[in-house]
């Protein structure tokens, strides 16, 4: 029983990290129609910035500053890169972000080298939070969940309860009308893109020391966050949340079960493939995803 409990907690916390990663991606997509291939690179930047800042002035300032820097970088990318490319359509944008991902990775190699850097969980968050019949649950995982939930609530509040949130929502469906009303829509786009990047950066600050901060980390999470966003429904924040938890728990429990499948394979062995299987099946049955509104 406690095994189930531990695995549920593991599944939820992994799911929440996935949500932190995919929320920015899905926000940017919903507003700008841009599938940002460099999103996972912003995650990596967040981790490296946090490493650099925390080695100088500590983890807590890094938690705030690193996402802000990544966000600022994101805005610059939108203002001076994406906005120009936007005129040439979605394919050009896609290629642009694709190239950007490579650029960021190579720049990371040049600045921080190719090996893992020593970015550690701060001592005050290192250690067990509570015990479940002999199994420890680390404080840091609890912290991760807390940050993710706080993020979800604040995005939701910002989008539905603030003026800028309403403008963003309006610009989503009727950009011309919003512009006619005197709002600077390109600036809204820039803010949203920067905001999405900052969210990925925050996930990087949290995920970088929970796992490993190394130049391959962007490539490693890239596919799974796309799956999350597609399963949740492109552009749907609630969908991304549900899909993240679903994928997190599904993977965790599949690993726990040694049920025999075919050809001598065990369920635990195929666990990492399941999210992709889910995506393919879902695309066949319900192409817009769980909560999506766009077709295809």
């Amino acid at each position: 029983m406690e095994f189930v409990l531990v695995q549920t907690l593991n599944g939820i916390s992994y799911g929440l990290l996935l949500f932190m990663l995919s929320s920015g991606l899905t926000l940017v997509f919903s507003l700008m129609g841009v599938l940002n291939f460099a999103h996972a690179s912003f995650y990596m930047m967040g981790a490296y910035f946090a490493y650099q800042i925390s080695s100088k002035i500590g983890f807590w300032p890094a938690l705030v500053l690193a996402p802000l820097f990544v966000g600022a970088f994101g805005m610059l990318v939108e203002r001076f890169g994406l906005r120009r490319v936007h005129r040439h359509g979605h394919v050009a944008e896609l290629l642009f972000t694709f190239g950007l991902a490579y650029l960021i990775e190579e720049a990371t190699h040049l600045i921080w080298g190719r090996s893992a850097v020593e970015y550690r969980v701060p001592p005050e968050l290192d250690g067990p939070l509570f015990q479940i019949v002999g199994s420890q649950y680390p404080i840091y995982r609890g912290f991760m969940m807390l940050v993710a939930v706080a993020m979800l609530v604040s995005i939701w509040l910002a989008l539905t309860r603030t003026r800028i949130g309403l403008v963003i929502q309006a610009a989503l469906s009727h950009p011309q009308t919003v512009e006619a009303l005197g709002h600077n829509v390109p600036r809204v786009f820039m803010l949203v893109f920067g905001g999405g990047a900052a969210l990925a950066g925050l996930a990087g600050v949290i995920g970088g020391n929970a796992f490993v901060t190394e130049p391959g980390m962007a490539a490693a999470v890239g596919p799974i966050i796309f799956v999350t966003v597609v399963v949740g429904g492109m552009g749907s924040l609630a969908g991304a949340f549900i899909a993240s938890l679903l994928i997190g728990c599904m993977q965790t429990f599949a690993i726990s079960l040694d049920w025999p499948l075919f050809f001598g394979l065990k369920l635990s062995q195929v666990a990492p493939v399941l999210p992709y299987l889910l995506m393919v099946l879902l695309l066949i049955v319900r192409p817009k995803g769980l909560m999506g509104t766009r077709e295809g």
Partner: peptide
């Protein structure tokens, strides 16, 4: 990425 299920 997350080995905690294996560890459990």
């Amino acid at each position: 990425k997350d080995f905690s299920p294996y560890v459990a």
